Amino acid sequence: MPVPSAHEFHWQSLACLSSARVYHSLADVGGQLYSAGGCDASGQPCSTLELYSPEVDRWLSLPSMPSSRAGAGVAVLGKQLLLVGGMGKEQRPLKAVEVYYTDEGKWRKRCSLREACMGVSVTVKDGRALAVGGMGPDLLPRSVFQQYDLRKDVWALLPPMPTPRYDTSICLLGTKLYVAGGRQCKRLVKAFEVFDMETRSWSSLPSLLCKRSYSGVIWDSAGRFCWLGGLRQGGLHQSSKFTKNVNIFDTNQGVWLKSEDTVPLKTKRADFAAAIVRGRMIVAGGLGHQPSVLDSVEAFHPEKRKWERLSPMQTPRCSASSIVMRDRLLVAGGVNQVPSAAHEILYVKEEEIL
């Protein structure tokens, strides 16, 4: 199927969240969009759970989470929505694990983490949640790797990561779990490691090419890790700088592509939404050298090998939560000087939205 041209992409504003927020968790459960928790306009974590209804274009309020939290790890296990750790009141890590049963409309507290953790990265394999790393109550990074069985309601420890960290980028490809980057307190981590489910062992991969934060991360269908833009950490007596660099790691070959084989973004940016829509890498919004947040959007054309400008977002912002559903990018909340309640969708014009 040919990729769409730039003019075929279209943004549309949908119903706003019930309140402005940031660091909320979005999840697709059975084709339905849920938003859980986040920080409100006063910076406090909230317990809000909402379901977006495209039929009436509004967010429906659902039973609140037992624990207020922001930045929680989220996993979908069948019809259940699992929330793991995150930041609670007084900006402290949480150990609470809770599950929302969508068919019953009820929350249940489940087996807690062994210790409170925020910045946990979560994915799912064979109906079980895998949780990687995190920051503990002492604000130090963890190397813990654990697996949750919903049916038995139990956490089992797996071999720990070689490099302790939190806020990592993870991707499960077949029987291998890739873990890239992350943080250790104020230090950025360049470590890139992979866990083999069959041998139950960790291996080190060639490290990330530089230290930069707030990058866009995309794992494409060819098994490539695409690391886009971000804020490059300055050296001694040097300030950090926004970048438009694009680095790509090919997991099949186990190497980073050469710089001449990648194409930089048009605009230097960090803290933006990034996704693949209809075969095209998309970057939207974020922060740049400008004093205000960005509304600009770019899409990479694989045949032309260049980034093209798309129509801008209707609400400029950074730190937005985003998710791809049915080949459409949904961007909700975020920050534009203050937290935003905006909710927009990027889709191809020939299609009906949602």
Rank of each mutant, 00 (worst) to 15 (best):
H7P: 08
L17K: 05
S19N: 08
Y23P: 01
G31H: 09
S35E: 09
G38Y: 09
D57F: 05
M65C: 03
G71W: 03
L77V: 05
L77Q: 05
G78L: 13
K79G: 00
G86I: 03
M87V: 14
T102Y: 02
R108L: 13
K109S: 13
V120I: 14
V120G: 01
S121E: 06
K125Q: 13
R128K: 15
R142S: 15
V144M: 13
Y148C: 05
R151E: 15
A156N: 12
A156S: 15
A156L: 13
L157H: 09
M161Q: 11
T163D: 02
T163Q: 04
T168R: 02
T168E: 01
V179W: 12
G181R: 01
K190W: 07
E198Q: 11
S207F: 12
L209A: 06
L209S: 10
K211M: 02
Y214V: 06
Y214A: 14
S215Q: 03
V217G: 02
I218Y: 02
W219M: 13
D220H: 02
F225W: 04
G229Y: 00
H237E: 12
S240P: 13
I248P: 10
I248G: 06
D261R: 10
K266S: 05
T267A: 00
K268P: 00
R269A: 11
A270L: 07
A270S: 15
I276E: 15
R278G: 04
Q290F: 00
Q290M: 06
E298A: 11
A299Y: 02
R309A: 13
R309G: 01
L310D: 05
T315W: 00
P316A: 08
S319Y: 08
A320M: 14
I323K: 12
V324M: 04
L329V: 05
P339G: 09
I345N: 00
E350T: 10
